[in-house]
Amino acid sequence: MFNNLSAWFTPRTPLDKQSKRLLTFGSFAIPILLWCLFSYVPFIWHPQVEITQPGGVSYFREGTLVDKEIFQKEVDKKLAANPDLDPALLPQGEPANPVYLPAPHEVVTALYTAFTTPPKRNNEPWLHESLWHSIQVIAWGFFWSMVFGVPLGILAGTYASASHLIEPFTEFFRYLPAPAFGALAVAILGIYDAPKIAIIFIGTFFQMVLIVSATTRKLNIALVEASLTLGCKGLRMIRRVVLPGILPDLYRDMRILLGWAWTYLIVAELIGTSSGITWFITQQARYKNFDNVFAAILIIGIIGLITDMILARLGKRLFPWHTSK
């Protein structure tokens, strides 16, 4: 079946289609399988007991989760008090996982029900509204980063003078954690979306300047020199040669940075009035609906993966000359 299995273990060797598919499948299947094992096989982990029959213990209720040791202690107590007790009257229960590890099927159901369940209070948003809010915050934060970060990065990558003016400070600011500006952002920009957008901006902008300048510097210098000898210089050269020259790499950089923006989103949304998908997650965790929490986290992952795949496909179409690399 895998006549070139040896390719799996040869460094930097492309795989055949079948192996590629199998491994991609496995990359998702293995973690899911592990999750299933922990959830459905009773003797793996399952540190708690879900009570099916209280058996006269005062604080046992049907459906409550207690630690295994406590359950055993209560059973032993009952037996010590009355050794001849009918085993059917003893407290009984099934091995269970803690509430924070819902089983796969519960999360899958939650993926659907989270969207259909109305919010607890009238003024609270539905899940899709929260999500849309998050996406808007990310989009604005990332947009402003790009508006300032890309031109500055290109300038720094093209001119040594711009690089010396821009990069040292950027390099310093990059080490200041964006969430640390939370309190400041709220003080200046209020409690609604503005400080959240600012956090995403701070989190991505400085990285973007440095990454774009590095990408610009990787542009084949012969292209720049050729354009100079052809009579094209200055800003016109940047527009006609540098920008199209780095565009495919720039596009890839933006894809990577967009992933970072999602990371900062979660912190940003806790600032001021909690909002968006993070608000949904904290709220559900408060109600101990951990299946919904998992569902929300998965949704973020799925949105991220899908945008990235769409952007990757689009990139191939937009830059047909880039396939040669």
Binding site: A222, T229, L230, H322
Partner: peptide
Amino acid sequence: PDRGMVFQSYSLFPW
């Protein structure tokens, strides 16, 4: 533009 140049490395604009 009065001095054209051809480089050793390929310097055509790939796009």
